[in-house]
Write a protein that binds this DNA or RNA. Structure first.
Length: 424
RNA sequence: GUGGAUGUAGCUCAGUUGGCAGAGCACCAGGUUGUGGCCCUGGGAGUCGCGGGUUCAAAUCCCGUCAUCCACCCCA
């Protein structure tokens, strides 16, 4: 094998045809839908001051501690590739001041985390994120969940399920942790080593441990909402009522937890059975982020596009074979003179909106026909010395082999009609 | 950061106790000097991931390294 001098870095790769067509479908479906929900795109920088992420994610988080691509720029400033999308959006919103109230934004692009790659986890990965800004309220949370469900439908992900829970208020966190810790204590001998550590460090994480013993214990625990106040429980009840009103197929999972500290009230996650260990397609929740004296409140979610695409391939395998990129027409030339004239023909057809391809290397007609067949073209236009003398074009249907001689206007008309019928 | 598996032709993979580098598919050409798919014939193509070691001899054994896949921590 020819060893390339440079290959992509670990966990990063080129994304090309045919897979890239599926990505384009997924992205375009999302953009169409987001427009229906009046959510506007925002494109924030991929490279940011390191402090932006440290402040918004928290100094002690794993992402900040060991997963960021951080280096010094030429001026000696510490900069980082963005490991997630919310921080940049929050910075943007904070800059808007009062105008930020009610903002509805989405972002779509690459994120970077220096983790060990595995199924559904890359060092450069891509997220679609949505942020609906506004004060706490079940209605807005449910609107975000409705949008999330609508996206799943648009992508054709039938096997995906939204699970919902509440994280309560920051003031209730201590009571929740303490309550869980007490409930877990009698079971400590049955927990795995990691969970005994989590008991002290991050007791919520015991709830989604993958070890069978720990799961069995988790089943017996009270719901986290049992440790919250009446207001938080009522909030979740109201969310549930509105979900029913909209007939959204989300289910309450009393053991669902999410990592980031800024979440409060409604949180959710979407899992897909075909994904392996990293089975979360997307996750979101209501948040409140303190930012330079002001507080940004809203509800949002982020979807991992690599995982979405994998799930789409699983749920509808046929879509991997996209028709996009296939020319409707392939132009075959015989002789140098014809090749030159066919270059002119190709330009004319393309200006009329007809996708076409042609070989420029003067290969045999047979070879050009093989290329036409391989390209998936519906028609071949054949032109050589004979046709040029007569001022005609041979139009051949690749499907049944039938061919006829046409003048230019008729040829264009036929190809236009065919490409409209295909809806391309 | 930790653990396991795997790197041989463009792709999928064989390769026995260490003894000349292989197949299928794909590609190119011919069979049809201007016509695709099916069929037949032929052809090109690999520093066996990379570097070192053992050996008369290494794709094969040993060490290192890079990458891929999978899992852990954590997370989309």
């Amino acid at each position: 094998m020819t060893v390339p001098s440079f290959q992509p870095l670990q966990g990063m790769s080129d994304l090309a045809s045919p897979e890239v067509h599926l990505w384009q479908e997924v992205e375009e479906a999302a953009r169409r839908l987001l427009a229906l929900y009046q959510v506007e795109e925002v494109r924030t920088p991929i490279l940011e001051p390191t402090g932006l992420f440290v402040r918004s994610l928290g100094e002690g988080t794993d992402v900040v501690q060991k997963e960021m691509y951080t280096f010094e720029d030429r001026g000696g400033r510490s900069v980082s590739l963005r490991p997630e999308g919310t921080a940049g959006v929050i910075r943007y919103l904070a800059g808007l001041g009062p105008e930020a109230a009610g903002a509805r934004l989405y972002y779509l692009g690459p994120m970077f985390r220096a983790e060990r790659p595995q199924a559904g986890r890359r060092r450069q990965f891509h997220q679609l994120g949505v942020e609906l800004i506004g004060p706490p309220g079940p209605a807005q949370d449910v609107e975000a969940i409705a949008l999330q469900q609508h996206l799943l439908n648009a992508w054709g992900l039938k096997a995906a399920r939204i699970e919902i829970n509440s994280r309560g208020l920051p003031a209730e966190q201590a009571a929740v942790s303490e309550g869980l810790r007490k409930a877990l204590e009698p079971h400590e001998p049955r927990l795995c080593d990691d969970c005994r550590r989590r008991l002290k460090a991050n007791v919520l994480r015991v709830l989604d441990c993958k070890q069978e013993g720990c799961r069995a214990v988790a089943e017996t625990l009270p719901a986290v909402t049992d440790f919250m106040g009446a207001d938080s429980r009522a909030y979740l009840d109201e969310v549930r009522r509105l979900l029913d009103l909209l007939e959204l197929p989300a289910v309450i999972n009393p053991r669902l937890v999410r990592g980031l500290d800024y979440y409060q009230h409604t949180i959710w996650e979407i899992r897909h059975p075909a994904l392996g260990a990293q089975d979360a397609l997307a996750g979101g929740g209501r948040y409140r982020i303190e930012w330079e004296g002001a507080a940004i409140e809203g509800v949002g979610f982020a979807a991992g596009l690599e995982r979405i695409v994998t799930a789409v391939q699983h749920d509808r395998p046929a879509s991997a074979e996209s028709a996009r990129g296939k020319p409707a027409t392939w132009i075959v030339s015989q002789g140098a003179k014809a090749l030159e004239q066919n270059l002119v023909l190709a330009q004319l057809l393309r200006q009329r909106g007809i996708a076409c391809g042609l070989a420029l290397d003067g290969r045999s007609v047979k070879a050009q026909m093989r290329a036409a067949n391989r390209s998936g073209a519906a028609f071949a236009v054949i032109r050589g010395e004979l046709e040029m003398e007569k001022g005609l074009f041979v139009l051949k249907s690749m499907k049944d082999g039938a061919q006829e001689e046409l003048e230019l206007p008729a040829l264009v008309e036929r190809l236009l009609r065919a490409s409209r019928a295909e809806g391309t």
